[in-house]
């Protein structure tokens, strides 16, 4: 019984500790965003890593998501003779939810884990300590560019995912399921509003922040040699994905 209580207490302390450390890291990283001079080279490098190099993965996920949505919703909507409603179903699902969330998850898996591994390696090989010794602020030099890249690049990846997702749905709906192409486009345009797209983009910016922050946290505070590097990658990935889904729920309930 006492062990259980102690265990609960320890867990709680860990959660509070982690939250505090993350909060601190976030506030420092955000503060450094507004303090010139900017580390442009680092920021651009991270942007390329997070954004440009994720395009392929995001396009694949986006288009397949749109296609599978068209197939599934067609089966259901056919029963009501509302085949043309496939178009808004695909467009709204992709723009509001699936575009941002799947992009966030894919980037967390691809870039987030890589980021955590990189930072953790730097930590265990004492490169970060070396930076501190050379009077270079590691937060400013390592973390702020990554977080900034996440916040800026995720919306752009998301808009690409939205676009190819809708195109994918169109291709399946019109070419394979035989929905009239004019009707498909008209329904999409009828039901999709700029607000839907914008909400998705705001979400994705938050996801970008969450996944980079989680990667930076676990990488930055990694301990325990090579094993610790692996743990950091896994943990950052799990926390990132869970937080993305949870925050998605919160934001969705606030937005609509």
């Amino acid at each position: 019984m006492r062990e259980f209580l102690e265990e609960t207490g320890r867990k709680t302390r860990t959660v509070v500790e982690i939250s505090g450390q993350i909060g601190l890291m976030l506030s420092q990283a955000l503060m450094w965003i507004f303090v010139p001079p900017y580390k442009w080279r680092n920021i651009i490098k991270q942007m390329e890593f997070v954004g440009v190099q994720s395009v392929f993965v995001v396009v694949l996920t986006g288009s397949f998501t749109g296609m599978v949505l068209a197939l599934q919703s067609f089966e259901a909507l056919k029963r009501f003779g509302a085949e043309s409603m496939v178009a808004p179903t695909v467009a709204l699902s992709v723009a509001r939810e699936l575009g941002p969330v799947l992009t966030g998850l894919m980037v967390a898996g691809r870039a987030g884990s890589a980021m955590a591994t990189e930072l953790a390696t730097m930590r265990v090989t004492e490169q970060i300590d070396a930076l501190t010794t050379m009077a270079i602020n590691p937060t400013r030099y390592l973390i702020t560019p990554r977080i900034l890249a996440g916040i800026l690049m995720l919306p752009i990846l998301t808009i690409i995912a939205d676009f190819v997702g809708i195109i994918g749905g169109y291709v399946i709906g019109v070419k394979m399921l035989g929905i009239n192409s004019g009707v498909y486009i008209a329904r999409t345009v009828d039901y999709l509003t700029f607000g839907d797209i914008m909400d998705g983009l705001i979400k994705s910016a938050v996801f970008g922040l969450i996944l980079t922050l989680s990667a930076c946290y676990y990488g930055f505070y990694a301990t325990g040699g090579a094993e610790g590097v692996g743990k950091a990658a896994t943990r950052s990935m799990v926390l990132g994905c869970v937080l993305i889904l949870a925050s998605d729920y919160v934001m969705t309930s606030m937005m609509y």
């Binding site: 808009i159 676009f163 999409t188 345009v189 999709l192 509003t193 700029f194 839907d196």
Partner: peptide
């Protein structure tokens, strides 16, 4: 983004 927002016209 611009293309889509112009198309949906919202």
């Amino acid at each position: 983004l611009v293309f889509m927002s112009l198309r949906v016209g919202g």
